[in-house]
Nucleic acid binder design. Structure first.
Lengths: 181, 181
DNA sequence: GACGATACGGAGCCATCGTTCCGGTTGTCA
DNA sequence: TGACAACCGGAACGATGGCTCCGTATCGTC
């Protein structure tokens, strides 16, 4: 995370860029102009490019960490009691968090692999799949669903949330649909 | 639809533009460059703008007709037997059709009103709401859902379909979630 | 045919945005 | 403190795409 071997001002600027990018991407998603991020960070566009080869790379730097947090959380729950409840709680929490953060939203939605699938996003998928399988084994979740399906359903829920913000009961429709019939 | 009082060549070009726009929007959605539509129609960009004040207006001209068809279909089913089955069949059909047509997809998804909400899109929403209410009255669909919720769920299903094309059983998750618990 | 109105095409304008370049500045180390 | 390398800001470039403008072509009518 903290790049060493940089000059002091460079290290400071890098941190400012990351903070600004986190805020701007969270608010407006990948669509935010890079110049806005630079202005928010109080640096020039050139400085951003000195630290990150492209806007996409900056985006990933900001977002991968967050997605890894999700994966970590999922791993921590992998041995918990009541796999059904754990699974649904986690599912709802991920959607809630992501719907508050356009960056996460865009990262999860982006299908045409920017590398999330092969990269750390993979850890998330695997960890989530474990929760799913445990919930299925416990008979709480229907069996005709796999990890990829789950990801697609998350994307769908995010679209719902974006279209009709704050309608909590719509996610419940999906959750109920996931229960064993 | 057919503008009268136009010169013969103008009428012909207008039709060519509409046909090209229908094809291009269906394939690539609102994102297709207007120049592509003009080229596909075999006319210049200026000609497109002589007939439609903006790209957005052309898009609506293409799409509203299609959405009206949906509304018409819904009205025709409003008195059918077995409201539950009718409702779910219709729901699935709309999603299937729209997922094959990026123009419909974008039109339904677009929340920041381009006028669809107030315009003919309203007829669709009303007609669909009638089917929903009948299905609810028959006890086939959960009661804590209204027409707007339904629209949001359609948007969600379209996102799922876009992310994981062809996974029919995911729509079934939503359908099952809509059934009376 | 000839002539005026109508319509056409596509070059060009303007705005946006990712990215690069370079003259000037600043940190670091002797 | 001096000097060099590292770094900075922001102007400029190139690509994209919506939209306009105007010289030219075509249509409809007499």
């Amino acid at each position: 995370m903290e790049k060493t071997g940089l000059r002091a001002d460079a290290r400071r600027n890098r941190a400012k860029v990351l903070a600004a990018a986190e805020e701007a991407f969270a608010a407006e998603g990948l669509a935010v102009p890079l110049d806005d991020i630079a202005r928010l960070a109080g640096v020039g566009a050139g400085t951003v490019y000195r630290h990150f080869p492209s806007k996409e790379a900056l985006f990933q730097a900001v977002v991968l960490e967050r997605i890894d947090q999700f994966a970590e959380e999922a791993r921590a729950l992998a041995a918990a009691d009541d796999p059904g409840e754990v699974f649904f709680d986690y599912f709802v929490r991920v959607i809630k968090q992501a719907s508050l953060n356009r960056a996460l939203c865009d990262a999860l939605t982006e299908s045409t692999g920017t590398g999330f699938k092969a990269d750390a996003g993979d850890e998330f998928r695997v960890a989530f799949a474990v929760l799913l399988e445990r919930a299925q084994a416990a008979g709480a979740v229907r069996a005709d669903i796999d990890g990829d399906d789950l990801r697609a359903l998350i994307v769908g829920c995010l679209a719902v949330e974006r279209y009709a913000p704050g309608s909590r009961h719509l996610v419940r429709v999906v959750v109920d649909g996931l229960r064993t019939p």
